[in-house]
Simulated assay, not measured.
Amino acid sequence: MALRITDACINCGACEVACPNTAIYEGGVDWQWSQGTQLQTVEVEGKILNAALPQDPYTHDTFYIVMGKCTECVGFHEEPQCAAVCPVDCCVLDLDHQETPEALLAKKKFLHGC
């Protein structure tokens, strides 16, 4: 499953720097599929999009994690790095978006080509 950032976030930014997938963005900041990945196009809801097109932020108040880019650090680290570095323990599993370890590894391969 992907992770999410709770309202307890103090906006320190430690999680953003630690993410190997560039899946974490500051509140109010647009995100891109291509940022930190090898993607040039991506299929979203049956449409092929330029991966460099800016996407609307999930929130404007706190840092947020893009579910489609979060792999829980599978294939990179033993544990999710955002949760490991968060000083207030607000990077938690998103129980609404559960994924198997195999699906997370496949997502890593999709994002990075390896």
Rank of each mutant, 00 (worst) to 15 (best):
L111A: 00
C9R: 04
K109I: 08
T59P: 01
L111P: 02
L105N: 08
E45I: 03
P101S: 14
T100L: 06
H77I: 00
M1I: 04
V74K: 15
Q55R: 06
Q35F: 10
A83Y: 11
C86Y: 13
T37I: 07
V92C: 05
A103W: 05
Q55I: 00
C91S: 14
T62M: 01
D94M: 15
K108N: 12
C19T: 00
L49M: 12
F110Y: 14
D89V: 01
S34C: 05
C15M: 09
E26R: 15
E102W: 03
H60A: 09
Q35T: 06
L111E: 05
D96Q: 09
A52M: 08
M1K: 09
N50L: 11
T41Q: 14
Q35N: 13
V66T: 04
C19H: 02
L39P: 04
V66Q: 13
Y64H: 00
Q55Y: 00
E16N: 12
V42L: 02
T71K: 09
L104E: 03
C15E: 15
L49R: 06
C91D: 09
Q55G: 07
D61M: 03
L93Q: 11
H97P: 03
E99F: 12
I48D: 12
Y25H: 12
E99D: 14
F76S: 09
G27F: 01
G13F: 04
L95W: 14
E45G: 02
A51S: 06
A103T: 07
Q32A: 05
G46D: 05
A83V: 04
V85F: 03
L3G: 08
T59V: 06
T71R: 12
C9A: 05
T6N: 01
M67L: 12
E45A: 11
A23F: 06
C82Y: 04
C15I: 03
H112M: 15
L49W: 12
P20F: 12
V92H: 00
A83C: 06
E45H: 09
E99H: 13
I65Q: 04
Y64T: 04
H60R: 09
M67F: 11
N50I: 01
V88H: 00
A14H: 05
Q35W: 05
M1L: 08
C86Q: 10
N21Y: 02
C12D: 10
F63N: 15
I10R: 13
H77Y: 14
G27S: 11
L95T: 14
C114R: 13
H97F: 13
P101G: 09
C82V: 05
V66P: 03
C86I: 01
T71C: 10
P80T: 11
F63H: 15
I48G: 00
C114H: 14
P54L: 14
H97I: 01
L105W: 11
L3V: 05
E78F: 07
H97N: 13
C91L: 01
